[in-house]
Computed example of a mutant assay.
Amino acid sequence: MESAILALLGTVVGGIVTVLTSYFLQKQRFEQEVKLKQEDNKTEFMAENTAKHFLSHKSFTDRSFETLRNHLGGFDDDELRKILVRAGAIRVTRDDGSEWWRLLSRMDEYIETKRAKH
């Protein structure tokens, strides 16, 4: 009876160790693959980070597309728009037809700013 319990306990412990080892190896592999993908697409990742930086400025909830295009050179207009969307931004067209962008995460701040002005 004792030998059966020890055998079962050894099997359970071995299974747990195998599962944990497999999990951590897969997690490490996934993290390495993400880093490789980021390195392969470094320009796009950095462009997204730069867009977030400009759109996160304390004083400005919105930035004109022209301003963003000037600071994020090297992309055609539609490619830059895709980068802005991946960064979490939305496009707003003003009454004069100009294109402006703001982070979706800053909508509450934008609304509060509008209320304070009125």
Rank of each mutant, 00 (worst) to 15 (best):
E99V: 07
R106V: 01
S22C: 09
H57S: 03
R81V: 06
T18S: 07
V19K: 05
K35Y: 10
T93I: 14
L84K: 07
K114D: 02
H71R: 14
Q28C: 02
T61A: 06
F30E: 11
L36H: 08
R94T: 08
E109L: 03
N41R: 10
M46F: 12
T93W: 01
A89P: 05
S3Q: 01
G88F: 05
M1R: 08
K114T: 12
K114I: 04
R102W: 04
K117S: 13
F30R: 05
E44R: 14
G14M: 02
I83V: 13
L20E: 09
L68C: 07
F24V: 01
K82H: 05
L9C: 00
Y23N: 03
E66N: 07
T67Y: 12
D76P: 04
D96F: 08
V34F: 13
L84F: 00
K27Q: 11
S98M: 07
H118Y: 11
A4M: 02
E39R: 12
H71L: 02
G74I: 12
E31G: 00
T113S: 12
E39H: 15
E109M: 12
N70H: 02
N41S: 15
V92K: 15
I83D: 10
F65L: 01
W101F: 14
V13Q: 04
K52N: 12
G14Q: 06
H57E: 09
E99C: 06
F60I: 01
H71A: 06
R102F: 10
V19L: 07
D108W: 02
T43W: 15
G73S: 15
T18E: 05
Q32P: 03
T93A: 04
R106W: 11
V34Q: 10
E109N: 08
K42S: 10
R91C: 14
K52P: 04
F60N: 02
D77P: 05
R63N: 15
F45T: 07
E44T: 15
G73T: 06
R63P: 04
F75N: 08
L9V: 01
I90T: 08
E44N: 09
D108I: 00
A116I: 01
I16V: 11
D77F: 01
R91N: 12
E99R: 12
V19N: 03
T113M: 11
V12H: 04
T11I: 00
R81P: 05
D96M: 13
D95I: 06
F60S: 10
L80W: 11
A4E: 01
Y23A: 08
L55V: 00
H57K: 10
D96Y: 12
L72H: 09
R106H: 15
H118C: 03
L9G: 00
H53T: 07
S22I: 00
K52Q: 13
L84C: 05
V12T: 01
V34Y: 12
D62F: 14
L84S: 03
V19Y: 12
K37R: 07
D78V: 05
M107R: 11
H71E: 13
R102D: 03
R29I: 10
N49W: 14
E39M: 08
V12L: 00
